[in-house]
Design a protein around this nucleic acid. Structure first.
Lengths: 282, 282
DNA sequence: TGCAATATGTAAATAATTTTCATATAATAA
DNA sequence: TTATTATATGAAAATTATTTACATATTGCA
């Protein structure tokens, strides 16, 4: 019972007559209400008799109105919509928690739905074949860049990163056409970040941008853009959720690169993980 | 109708008697089937009379069995389960991307479903009323701690953090009973982290732990534990997803603290954001 | 325009659900 | 441990919801 009855009714409106479309319109208008209603309530609301509704349910492929009703109730809702929205002064702790987490979940869904596997393939190809890989980001994005550096240290790739802008700029200037860079910026418009990207571009470095805006200056400079999407509820929540998406894009690249390297890489991962990451306290 | 009736029934099994739990078990075993069944079918399947089922529906807060049935039909399915699993050598780029993002999404859902608003209230109370707040984490968790520091710099709170273990230890030793600390560790067993937590505890600092394991040594030391949950597919993916959950817990605390402070705080946030975070390139 | 086919709604027939009542079970007090 | 009281359960009666039959209205075709 995973068919989406609403999508089906929308697509097939032309195949039904006037009375049936009266019912369809009523059901589509408020699917939640329709899914909870008895056939009598639906009849009063739509102006179609219960007998016709019963027949309609059979016509669209159900054994009974009851089965049709179940399909309405289980039709996909717009995900997490009840808890998705701007945090207001009236929100208590539970509501704030739900909204922050819903924002992050929606950012993840939006981002993966937009990410092209071909772009991911190209990006991981750049990383694997580069002599050296640099990760760059300013402000909040420096945390993503440093997290990326931290993760890719576990691969055989030669990677560099630094939290300070001045040192990032010096690192960028020293990279050349044999290298690759991942430049991370939520807006894609930060002046310092753009200067770094510009230097990289001038040196022929392959530039992978991770940003939220496809038409930003950073996207125009980059050879390849991976979008980290987040709903624009307000600026504060957007950049928080976007950071979650950025980190998960890095995780994905790291996993793809790891998967495409040899079994020896797996051993390096295990060994370095044990040394650096966690040591049992016994 | 956004309540998750299955999660509710699972959480409240202790509040029901033998016959009622017979019904609950039957319903949980196959929620899809139960959502489509008439009360008679459910009675035959579960061995509970239709009269008792009708009463049970009212007991758990519905007006009628029909409404209960609708709730079953519209209960959330296991999110993105089709793509949730271990990354294998046969996975192509698209599958890897889906699985990494599904792992992150599931971590977020598991974490928010377990987070108690009372605990969040207590944690934000500690933070707001502390003279100074320190964020501590080693290895991958240091990134979460530094991200937290970066975010809470935007609040009027006096906050400290440092990526190096030696300096974190020195900072911990200097905190006292007027202060609060957030200690972040995925496993809750890292020796360096535990030493820091121990020093904090000895000094009477209020310790908030963010960890994935409720019965870890860190949880035992802490005054308050916020769990960052992630399915244990394998160690690598679990700690990646757990980091996403940790960051989102920090985001939630930051938002709650911000919401509980004055409108003046909002202005501080806006001003500092413009100065530090992003500058338009024109 | 007229006729045949199809659709619709009312009402009767059937199915599903709720409530009542008698009995069983669990909890409590002596 | 036993007796009493309170509560739960299921069978059956009462009520509500749904489907189908039938009469009439509407649509499509020649």
């Amino acid at each position: 019972m995973s068919r989406n009855i609403i999508a089906q009714l929308r697509a097939q409106k032309k195949q039904f007559n006037t009375t049936e479309n009266k019912l369809i319109d009523y059901v589509i208008r408020d699917t939640n209400l329709a899914g909870e209603a008895t056939i009598q309530e639906l009849s009063v609301g739509s102006g179609v008799s219960t007998a016709t509704i019963s027949r309609f349910a059979k016509k669209v492929g159900f054994d009974s109105f009851r089965d049709f009703s179940v399909a309405l109730a289980s039709a996909p809702k717009s995900a997490t919509s009840d808890f998705f929205g701007e945090i207001t002064d009236e929100d208590d702790t539970a509501a704030i928690g739900q909204k922050v987490f819903a924002g992050a979940t929606n950012a993840l869904n939006a981002t993966i739905n937009n990410l092209s596997p071909d772009l991911l393939d190209d990006a991981s190809h750049y990383l694997i074949h580069a002599k050296r890989v640099g990760f760059f980001g300013i402000g909040g994005s420096s945390i993503v860049a440093f997290n990326a550096y931290h993760k890719f240290l576990r691969t055989p790739l030669d990677v560099i990163a630094h939290p300070d802008y001045d040192i990032q700029l010096m690192q960028a200037v020293k990279l050349d056409a044999d290298d690759a860079a991942v430049v991370i910026s939520h807006s894609g418009r930060n002046k310092d970040t753009l200067l770094i990207a510009q230097k990289l571009k001038e040196n022929g470095v392959k530039v992978i941008a991770i940003t939220s805006f496809a038409d930003s200056p950073l996207s125009k400079i980059a050879d390849l853009v991976l979008l980290s999407l987040a709903e624009e509820i307000n600026f504060r929540s957007e950049s928080m959720s976007s950071l979650i998406a950025q980190i998960t894009i890095i995780d994905t690249l790291f996993t793809i690169v790891g998967s495409q390297l040899s079994k020896k890489t797996q051993n390096v991962v295990d060994t370095m993980r044990n040394i650096i990451e966690e040591t049992r306290s016994h």
